[in-house]
Amino acid sequence: MMAQPAFEAIVEDFEFLEDWEDRYRHVIELGKAMDPLDEALKVPANKVQGCASQVWLFPSVEGGIFRFDGDSDAMIVRGLVAVLRTLYNDLPVTEVGKVDAQAELSRLGLQDHLSAQRSNGLRSMIARIREVAA
Rank of each mutant, 00 (worst) to 15 (best):
Q54K: 15
Q54W: 09
Q54G: 13
Q54T: 13
Q54A: 14
Q54E: 13
V55F: 03
V55E: 07
V55W: 02
V55I: 07
W56I: 07
W56V: 01
L57H: 04
F58C: 12
F58Y: 14
F58S: 14
P59V: 02
P59R: 00
P59N: 00
S60I: 01
S60C: 08
S60P: 00
S60D: 13
E62C: 12
E62V: 14
E62L: 14
G63I: 04
G63C: 05
G64F: 04
I65T: 14
R67P: 00
R67H: 11
R67N: 11
F68R: 00
F68G: 00
F68K: 01
D69C: 10
D69V: 05
D69L: 15
D69M: 13
G70C: 06
G70F: 00
D71Y: 04
S72H: 06
S72D: 01
S72N: 06
S72C: 10
D73N: 13
A74S: 14
A74F: 09
A74N: 11
M75Q: 15
I76L: 15
V77I: 12
R78V: 08
R78N: 11
G79Y: 08
G79C: 12
L80I: 04
L80R: 00
V81F: 03
A82R: 04
A82P: 06
V83A: 10
L84T: 00
R85D: 03
R85S: 11
T86P: 07
T86W: 14
L87Q: 07
N89F: 08
N89W: 04
D90F: 10
D90W: 06
V93I: 10
V93Y: 01
T94C: 11
G97T: 09
G97M: 07
G97R: 09
K98D: 15
V99F: 08
V99T: 09
A101G: 02
Q102G: 11
A103H: 12
A103Y: 14
A103I: 09
A103C: 13
E104G: 02
L105P: 04
L105N: 06
L105S: 04
L105E: 03
